[in-house]
Amino acid sequence: MGDKPPGFQGSRSWIGCVEASLCLAYFGGPQGRLCHVPRGTGLTGELERLYSHFSGGGGPVMVGGDADAQAKALLGVCLGPGTEAFVLVLDPHCWSAPKNPKELQAAGWVGWQEVTTAFDPNSFYNLCLTSRNAEREQHPCD
């Protein structure tokens, strides 16, 4: 896209959610909308919106943080009674083709995590919410 120095192409350097959103737009992929959460503790305030995103047909949510260097992709949200809440987290470093979902779970590539322990309370997070729809749809962080 021309936003990185020439040595970036072909390297093993990482991009963040902001760059991922730019790539989606540039290469004509699904629409990516950015949402910035100043601290991991603030993600509990985004759960209803994330739930709406997924229940409305929204795609995976890419997650990147500063102090939390473990990239994540969110595939779903489960809101329990009271304050219980879980996110379905996929480790984007998964590289093999599993035979079935249980194999992914057993290897630790995907699983439900309590939202209060899945995110570093001191890290900021950028979320890139993807949409399969070509039309502009209202996203949680608009």
Rank of each mutant, 00 (worst) to 15 (best):
D3Y: 10
D3A: 11
K4T: 09
P5A: 10
P6K: 05
P6A: 08
G10E: 03
R12P: 00
R12W: 11
W14D: 13
I15V: 13
I15Q: 06
I15W: 07
C17G: 08
V18C: 04
E19R: 13
S21G: 13
L22A: 14
L24Y: 08
A25M: 09
F27Q: 14
P30H: 05
R33E: 12
R33W: 05
L34H: 07
C35Y: 04
H36C: 06
T41H: 06
T41G: 13
T44G: 02
G45L: 06
E46F: 05
R49V: 05
R49S: 12
L50P: 00
Y51V: 01
S52L: 11
S52M: 12
F54E: 01
S55T: 15
G56I: 00
G57K: 02
G58C: 07
G59P: 00
P60S: 08
V61H: 02
V61A: 02
V63D: 00
G64E: 11
D66C: 10
D68V: 03
A69I: 09
Q70T: 13
K72P: 03
K72L: 04
L75M: 10
L75G: 04
L75V: 02
V77E: 01
V77K: 01
C78P: 00
L79P: 01
P81I: 05
E84S: 14
A85R: 00
V89I: 12
L90F: 01
L90G: 02
D91T: 06
P92F: 04
C94G: 10
C94D: 02
W95I: 06
W95L: 13
S96Q: 15
A97C: 15
K99R: 15
N100I: 02
N100S: 15
N100L: 03
N100T: 07
P101K: 04
P101N: 07
E103H: 12
L104E: 05
L104C: 09
L104A: 07
Q105K: 12
A106T: 15
A106D: 15
G108M: 08
G108D: 04
V110M: 11
V115P: 02
T116N: 11
F119A: 07
D120P: 05
D120T: 04
N122W: 08
F124Q: 07
F124D: 15
F124C: 10
N126V: 07
N126F: 12
L129D: 01
T130N: 01
S131G: 10
E135V: 13
E135Y: 10
E135F: 09
E135A: 14
E137N: 04
Q138G: 10
H139T: 13
C141S: 10
D142T: 08
D142R: 03
